[in-house]
Structure formats: structure tokens, C-alpha cells
Write a protein that binds this DNA or RNA. Structure first.
Lengths: 252, 252
DNA sequence: CGGTGTGAACGTCTTCACAGCA
DNA sequence: TGCTGTGAAGACGTTCACACCG
């Protein structure tokens, strides 16, 4: 597990019983591990919907998402009972339910701070599935970059961060600055009311409780792969390519 | 947990007993969760070494790394007994041990495929700690980009992928292509002998056993944050900013 | 003392296996 | 019959608390 979320005193778990699927109440307390996989299911389902597939079994979804089918069923059952026994899940319905669970039904404004190559890549990412997550502002500290047009948006001065957060309803801040600036930007985002931060800078951010920070660190990822690379070569035996080339799912 | 590694039949675990710290044999079977944190400790230690700090306690290291001290001690004890009771850990020594455990003592060649904004950002990342991980080649399919100079390296044609992997001793492949090309590039990397892949494309890669894939998907991260953002607003009560602003560590 | 190293308790996530329903 | 939904078991990771030692 990469991320620790703030404990946020268990969200109003009414008794323990499951609620009617019909209107209103949603699942109380979806596990972090499940939440982390929902976006992957979402992507797969979008592809299926595009291909006019109407229903999908947990097994098929599992293969496409790179997990096993028990996990898919457990995950989906956390949100409610949306499958039909003997048949599978309705693609359109499941899409709607997962989108809802992820909070993608109303837009979440994103501001990207630091418009270097990484910031540009993020700004141009585009394919943010079914709306929901929308890049609303690009900020940078370099006067040479301010005013520049990137992906249809004008780069604004980081001096205006507080104003931008307030005016454009920013709920997620992405930090793509050098490590040295990360904590300061983070503090300002939090002070301005942002409670969700995605940090690409190689630095540990310290935040007050109630703020969610997720971190993506390229060099951490590469060093983990370095470890695994070494593991193979350290062991004298152990074929790099097993003679049973049975396909296996990856990470995602 | 974001990543699953291939099971790779437990690496020659000689009995269960701990080995002498002295020469030779290393810890058998370091948990994935620990491996994922070692790079963070490494980064912190580099900073300490830079500041001429000679020893560090598990508590101090923990604060700087954004974890708790029990975790630091458990993690480090997986590699051997390097601390001194009543004192702490020798920074230089710990740096060496972690570097060794991560396989950073001999260079691991990295090839980046797809030199868009993201690929450029990765190519220019630079700060790969204490050597070990070294970008050796940049590849792209766009003729307009081939031959271009990026961060001191010439962009090569992806047609030459197999040649490049062989000639430059590439052990880690980074996929920064559009989703549609990812599986094909992955297959070619694996066929060429690469056993470690870092995938930035929003696609699930299918690989044969023995190949490690790690995935970084921006839209997955944002959607997870969207979920948490929604969690707060869904709940009527629950102050966004608790009145006890006691600092708390973030993710990593 | 102060801080490491670690058994044991605890909590979370995954996997199994099967009851139950369309 | 086929596939979902889920209790129960097992694996894994975290946290606690303290023995041990410099």
C-alpha cells in the first residue's frame, strides 16, 4: 500500500446492516484497496461500453483489469448488489455506480502547480474518463512561463494561487514543482482550502489531519524495479523466461 | 498496495535463521512493503549525509520519511542489525546497506519509450540518488522526434528497440507511450530480455511470469482523490479543518 | 538512560469455496 | 447451469510493548 489516508473517524456507519440498493444510502466504508481498483474497472468498462458490450462477468472484467475474479466480486459487492447471478454485470449500470462511488458525477476542479515537462504532460493528459476530474488552472513561479498557452489554458502566476483556488472551485491540487518548493506550495494549497493533494515532487509533505496526500515518485518506482532486477541476478538458478509462458496479469 | 509482483518461487530461502552481518549473505525475503519504503529512507539519508549528520534515530528518520518509528525499525531490521542501541543508525553505513539491498551498487540501464512531455520529464529527472539507475536510451515512434536532442541524448527510433536493449544493457523499460501502443512496446521489451517495466500508459499490460510491471496512472490517482473529496462533502458534519492542527505525516 | 530489535497482538487484504439465485 | 455474493480461512502488514544492550 502506497498511501495512508487520514483516519477521518469512520463515516457515519449506520449500524452494520446493508441498505436497500434502491434510492439513497450508499455503502458505508469502502476499503482503500477497493477504492484504488475502482478507477481501473472504470477504464475497462468504458472500453467495453465503447465496444457496445452490454454485460460482463467478473471473470472477464478481472482479466481486463489484471486482477482475479474473486477480487472483482468482493470489490463490486462493497458498492451494492449490481450483478445478475448466472449472467454478470450490466456495463452501463456498473459504470454509473462506480462513477458515483468515486464522486465523478459532479466535477472536481484540479489545479496543477509547476508547468515544466511533467506539468505539461499532466495538463495534456486529457483522457480523464467520464468528466468528473477537470484541470481548471495551471500555475508556475517562472515569469518566463506565465502567460504562456498550454493545452488551451494560460499559465498563471503562482502568486495568485489563493485567488485561483477560491474562484475556480479547486478541490485537488497537483504539485509538479521541484522538491524544494513542494512543502511551501502544499501549505498554501491547504491554507486556501484544498484537502486533496497529488505530489510528484520527491519530498515528504507534512500536512495537518484531514488532508489527503498521494505521492508519485519516479525514482522510488525505478529503485523498486532495481531491487527486483537484482533479485533475479543474485539467485544463481531461476530462469528469466519460464518455459511455461502462460500469460499473467500485470500490476494495474 | 498498488503493485503485485510475479510470485517468482520464493528466492532460495536458506533455512530461516539470520545470517552473520559480516560478509556475504544478505537478508532472505524482504517484504514488498519494506522494499517500497527503502527508496524513501534512502532519499532522506542522502539529505542527512549532505548536512553532515552522522547518526540518526529511528524516530528522526521516521518523521522525515513520513512513517512511524516502529515501521522504520522493522524495515531496517529486515536487512540486518545496523543500529546501535541507545544511539541510532550510522548514516553512511545505512546508506550503503540500503543501496546494496536495492541493487544500486551496480548500474541498471533504463530505456524510455515515448518521448512526449512525460518522456521528457522522465528523461530530465536527473536526481536518481546515488547512481544505480541510469537513463541510457530514449526511443520514439514519431519520425519528427527521432534525432532530436533531449537532455543530452539523441532520440532513437523505436524500430531499433531490440538493438538498443542488447547493446546498452537495458534492464528497466519505461513505457510513456499512448495507451494503444503500450502492450506492443511491452511485448517487444520483454522479448528483447527486459524483465522490469514501469508503465505510465493507462492500460493493463499482460506479461509472462517472471516479468515485473509497475504502473503509474495519473487518472487513477486523481479519481482516488475525487473519492476522498466526495467522502467529506457527503458527510454533513465533519470539519474540514480540525481544530487540533497537529502536524501529521503524508504518504511518503 | 535511550534507542534498537523483535515477539505477539491486531487489523487489513486476498483467496477459497460454496450457498443461493436468475 | 452459470455466475454472483459472501462467510471463513489464510496471508500479509502494522502497531504495540518490552527485553536487551551500548
Amino acid at each position: 500500500m502506497t498511501a495512508r489516508f487520514t483516519d477521518d473517524a469512520a463515516g457515519a456507519a449506520s449500524a452494520d446492516g446493508r441498505q436497500e440498493t434502491a434510492a439513497g444510502t450508499r455503502a458505508a466504508h469502502v476499503p482503500d484497496a477497493t477504492v484504488a481498483r475502482l478507477p481501473v474497472y472504470l477504464r475497462v468498462l468504458l472500453g467495453l461500453a465503447d465496444a457496445k458490450v452490454e454485460t460482463v462477468s467478473s471473470e472477464d472484467l478481472a482479466v481486463a483489469a489484471g486482477v482475479n475474479s474473486a477480487k472483482v466480486r468482493k470489490d463490486l459487492s462493497q458498492l451494492g448488489s449490481f450483478g445478475t447471478r448466472g449472467v454478470g454485470y450490466d456495463v452501463a449500470n456498473l459504470l454509473a455506480e462506480i462513477s458515483r462511488e468515486l464522486g465523478l458525477t459532479r466535477p472536481r476542479g484540479v489545479a496543477i502547480v509547476g508547468i515544466g515537462n511533467l506539468g505539461r504532460a499532466l495538463a495534456g493528459y486529457g483522457g480523464f474518463a467520464p468528466r468528473g476530474v477537470q484541470v481548471e488552472a495551471l500555475l508556475d513561479a517562472d515569469p518566463g512561463r506565465i502567460g504562456e498557452m498550454v493545452n488551451g489554458m494560460i499559465v498563471l502566476s503562482v502568486d495568485d494561487l489563493e485567488k485561483v483556488v477560491a474562484n475556480r472551485d479547486i478541490s485537488i491540487g497537483v504539485i509538479a514543482t521541484p522538491a524544494g518548493a513542494a512543502q511551501d506550495i502544499c501549505d498554501r494549497l491547504v491554507a486556501a482550502g484544498v484537502r486533496n493533494i497529488l505530489n510528484f515532487a520527491p519530498a515528504t509533505l507534512i500536512v495537518s489531519p484531514g488532508v489527503n496526500v498521494r505521492k508519485v515518485d519516479l525514482s522510488v518506482e525505478l529503485q523498486i524495479l532495481s531491487f527486483h532486477d537484482q533479485q533475479r541476478t543474485r539467485r544463481p538458478r531461476g530462469p528469466a523466461v519460464p518455459d511455461v509462458p502462460e500469460a499473467v496479469e500485470a500490476t494495474s
